[in-house]
Design a binder for these strands. Structure first.
Lengths: 248, 248
DNA sequence: CTTTTTAATAGTCATGATGACTATAAAGGC
DNA sequence: GCCTTTATAGTCATCATGACTATTAAAAAG
């Protein structure tokens, strides 16, 4: 048995009795651009890892929750208006707490994933004007344990696509089934049969709803595709399983 | 846009520049006893919530990760030998960070779920000799936000049962298919068709493997059931979906 | 203005998994 | 032996799916 140690439950929780922990949030913000999955990254301006790519994020303030901090940081880094940020899908991913993940001090970080449609190039509202979209894999390495976070985010998103309607979060308000399929193919990295994909999506009540009479040319030529909006459903039953086995 | 505040990125991360955060782990340890889902709880010995039920847990020490802290606390609270605890399924659930979740100070807690087979009544090794199994719902309310944590744990376990082989973690080393089915029924709260359940489990390679020649009387009478061990598979494809819709 | 190209949409068909059953086998109690 | 109980074997219709082929509607090429 591990020794509990005399100081395990301090008298009255004296806040300064221990080496303090800092609590931060890290954001894995993903989008689909030009048929590829992209990640919102910043260039670090200070040591350690100065000049390297890192996930946006920052400290949780004394009077906010981690989720509030994540949404605030997202607004700051992307420069989007608050009401847009308020509507985005933000999901707590996991907490990373290795004692040595930050060489300066003990930092515990709560990671969040956000799925956004293809947005204009971000303009940081304040200190983070350097956030930009980078294609998955187009960065060499990331600062801290951020590569691990990104890998976890990717796995989670891929898995959630199987049994939720989350994919519409990557799409603009009105989209074609081809665009929705491309989102799936981009996230999963596999090709899907188009008629079968249509059948599945349309057979799931509330996944998408048609926009009456609307259509749009997809690639400039070919038959115009009907437009759809995200429906009210959130779950997919039965799930839409990836072709081969499990996560990559 | 939210104001960043002048102190958002402190000079050189001075560890004492802010009101410090405490980081704890909370454990939702579940088992199946007498056909019902049980939870490992302790009676709080101090204010706040003195005398009420709470999840076991404790502080993350300066040189350990949250996962290490969870395993250490689990060993301390259950009194199980370290090697047994090392083999148990422990999964990070979610982090709870509401600023007011603990009235004394800012405490961010990383919650873990553990699934254990029906163990002997726990004997706390040290300070927590009061941990005991309580049937789900048989406690009135729980301290802090622990009811929320338990609800999340239950949802997560139910969902994971659909697409993983996790249910065997609730079973002893050798078990009958009837016992495995009862685990599913207990966790999901629904009855399953016995022949169909058998078919599905046996048709999934690596879910269970037969123990050659072994059999056991299940309820005292009736035909003895064959014994199985947990197999090497971890995922279920296609998944074993709950009868009606989604989580409760 | 016809033909070609491209992409969306509509079907078909066989297979596999599933839900709802019925039937048989092996144990104990009487 | 007969009844009860529980495990196990098997049937059958339905539904979802993967792998296709066919048709339609547009733009671009000629």
């Amino acid at each position: 048995m591990v020794s509990a140690g005399p100081a395990r439950r301090p008298e009255g929780y004296d806040p300064y009795a221990f080496e303090p922990f800092a609590v931060t949030v890290d954001l894995a913000v993903c989008t689909v651009r030009d048929g590829g999955l992209h990640l919102l990254l910043i260039r670090r301006g200070e040591e350690p890892y100065k000049g390297e790519w890192a996930l946006p994020g920052g400290f949780v303030l004394p009077r906010e929750s981690a989720g509030q901090a994540a949404r605030r940081e997202l607004a700051e880094e992307t420069g989007l208006p608050d009401d847009v940020v308020a509507g985005l899908h933000l999901e707590q991913l996991r907490t990373y707490s290795d004692p040595d993940r930050d060489p300066r001090m003990r930092v515990v970080s709560v990671a969040y994933t956000a799925l956004v449609p293809d947005l204009p190039e971000p303009h940081g509202g304040g200190d983070a004007a350097h956030a930009q979209w980078v294609p998955f894999g187009a960065y060499g390495s990331l600062a801290f344990d951020h590569e691990r976070i990104v890998a976890d985010a990717r796995d989670r998103i891929g898995a959630k696509f199987e049994y939720t309607c989350l994919a519409t979060a990557f799409c603009p308000p009105e989209f074609t089934l081809g665009e929705l399929q491309q989102v799936y193919e981009t996230v999963w990295g596999t090709a899907l049969d188009r008629p079968n994909f249509r059948r599945k999506v349309l057979a799931t009540p509330g996944f998408v709803e048609p926009v009456a009479g609307a259509a749009r040319l997809t690639g400039g030529r070919g038959k115009p595709a009907a437009l759809y909006r995200a429906g009210v459903a959130t779950a997919l039953h039965p799930p839409l399983l990836r072709p081969e086995g499990r996560p990559s």
